[in-house]
Amino acid sequence: MGGRSADKVKFTSYDDLFGSAEVVAAEEDRSIRVPLGELHSFKNHPFHVLDDEKMMDTVRSIRQYGVLVPEIVRQDGGGGYESVAGYRRKRGSELAGCRDMPVIVRKMTDDEATIVMVDSNIQREDILPSEKAWVYRMNMEALSHQGVKGEDYTANLVGEAAGDCARTVQRYIRLTYLRRELLIYVDQGKIVLVAAEKISFLSDEEQGWVLQMIQDNQSTVSKSQAEELREESSAGRLTEEQVTDILSRKTVSTSVTISAKRIRSYFPQDFTKKQIEEIIFRLLDSWKEKENQTGQLR
């Protein structure tokens, strides 16, 4: 950060750090055309590029108008370029039969490139839970490397672009500790997020038992079952037989629906959804801590 003390720097948004990935070009940026064969994927990027109907729309647009927004890239050590933002445009160019495409070459560190990659994708409407989980984790780590201090503050900064509060960001990051097969079930909607978060605290072996039960019985895991699994695991009592017993039980729905109008009545009119969520989770966490201290939590 230019040698400045991180304690004296106040970050308020991604643009304050590196500018918009799609619009703002720094003075040292270069705009050129690059053969598609010289463009390589960003290391460990979590986004899926599908040849679906939306991609076919992109292909038709490229054939008619060309690539209107250049891809953001940086030079790699092999003489080519590493794609940072614009994977869909590159794939669309390939399917459209193009040999090259316009790019903006930007000098970026690994952490800067990670943040630009996340910022250019996080607001997609079709982003999968697994994609959001990994980009949140990658962005948290990148911002921490940049000197942003405080987990809650960093999580708030990470979730800002997508309108998620710190607690939501932390919940998503927990999904990165799931086995790959379980995370696929989350993407498919076979395991709800709240249950998946609880399962993520189980060991790899314990998650394997859960996965086997789901596969053998074509079933899923409810929130209450996931809570019991985590409780038993934390106490060191969880066995394969217990997993079978817990997931074999029929559960009673404990879902609660609260009127949005009623919730709104407790907050000032200018409060955003993010601010309301933060206060609600803060109050719930405070209540839970108080109940734990008095030994009355049921």
Rank of each mutant, 00 (worst) to 15 (best):
K290Q: 13
S259E: 01
K43C: 00
P35E: 06
P35A: 06
E151Y: 12
K190T: 01
K261W: 00
E125M: 09
Y136C: 14
S219W: 07
V69P: 00
Y153I: 14
A133R: 00
T251K: 12
A133Q: 02
Y14M: 13
Q242Y: 10
T244C: 10
D57Y: 02
M108V: 05
V116T: 09
T220F: 02
S200P: 04
G19I: 02
S248E: 12
N292A: 13
G77T: 15
N139E: 14
A85W: 00
A166R: 13
E38Y: 10
I62K: 02
N292I: 09
C98A: 12
D245M: 09
I184R: 05
Q207D: 03
A96F: 03
S144N: 14
P46M: 06
A133G: 03
E151R: 12
V252M: 07
V221L: 07
H40Q: 04
A226V: 06
K132L: 14
W134N: 14
P268A: 13
Q242P: 04
F201Y: 07
L68T: 13
G189N: 10
Y65W: 15
I258S: 04
Q225G: 09
Q296E: 13
R174H: 11
I184M: 05
E131N: 01
E112Y: 04
I104L: 05
Y65S: 10
V34D: 06
R4C: 10
I72D: 10
L178T: 08
E125N: 13
F281N: 14
E94Y: 01
D16F: 06
E291Q: 10
V105K: 05
P70E: 00
E112G: 13
G189C: 08
F267I: 11
D15G: 03
L175F: 07
P46N: 04
D126A: 11
E241N: 08
E227Y: 06
S93V: 04
A113I: 04
Q218C: 12
I214C: 05
E82L: 07
V192E: 15
E205I: 13
H40M: 05
D7F: 12
H48E: 14
G189Y: 08
E151F: 15
A260D: 02
N44P: 01
P35F: 04
D51T: 11
A25P: 01
V49R: 09
T109C: 08
Q269N: 15
F271D: 11
R264P: 01
S93I: 08
A85G: 12
L17W: 09
P46A: 02
E151Q: 09
R171M: 13
L95P: 01
T220D: 09
D204S: 08
F267D: 00
R230M: 12
V210G: 07
A196I: 02
L238G: 03
K288C: 14
L143D: 09
L202W: 01
S255L: 05
V67W: 04
T12R: 14
A195M: 06
L39D: 00
A142E: 06
S93M: 05
L247V: 06
E197I: 08
L175M: 11
L211M: 11
F42G: 02
Q170W: 05
I32L: 11
I122H: 05
G159V: 03
E82R: 06
L193G: 08
I191S: 07
K54F: 12
Y153V: 12
A235Q: 15
R298Q: 15
A161Y: 05
A161H: 08
L211I: 06
V118T: 15
Y81N: 03
Q269P: 15
P129W: 07
N217R: 13
G159W: 02
